[in-house]
């Protein structure tokens, strides 16, 4: 799973998709995940990174991560696989 190359997230959590003209806002955890995805990290690594920063259990993270990435795909921010 990879974020499209031309998409960047700013420090305020602002995401702009230059090919569609749409923009989005993400919360800090969403921002972290997008940045990890930009670095082509796998879910295991991302989970590890998030769980070392936040109080969270495995199942909750996996569930939320799945939902979040589904939304990213929905908004066409992910590379086609």
């Amino acid at each position: 799973m990879r974020i499209k190359k031309n998409i960047a997230v700013s420090d305020t959590g602002f995401i702009f998709n230059p090919s569609s003209g749409d923009s989005y806002s993400v919360n800090p955890i969403g921002m972290d995940i997008v940045r990890h995805l930009k670095q082509n990290k796998e879910i295991v690594e991302i989970k590890h990174a998030i769980m070392s920063d936040y109080v969270c259990d495995d199942a909750t993270f996996e569930k939320d991560y799945y939902d979040f990435t589904m939304m990213l795909r929905n908004y066409k921010l992910l590379e086609d696989e």
């Binding site: 602002f14 995401i15 003209g21 749409d22 923009s23 989005y24 806002s25 993400v26 919360n27 800090p28 955890i29 969403g30 972290d32 995940i33 070392s52 920063d53 936040y54 109080v55 969270c56 909750t60 993270f61 939320d64 991560y65 939902d67 979040f68 939304m71 990213l72 908004y75």
Partner: peptide, 13 residues
């Protein structure tokens, strides 16, 4: 550790 909050994204324009 920080308090966990579900990651969210929402369209702006």
């Amino acid at each position: 550790k920080k308090i966990y909050e579900r990651p969210i994204i929402r369209p702006l324009n």
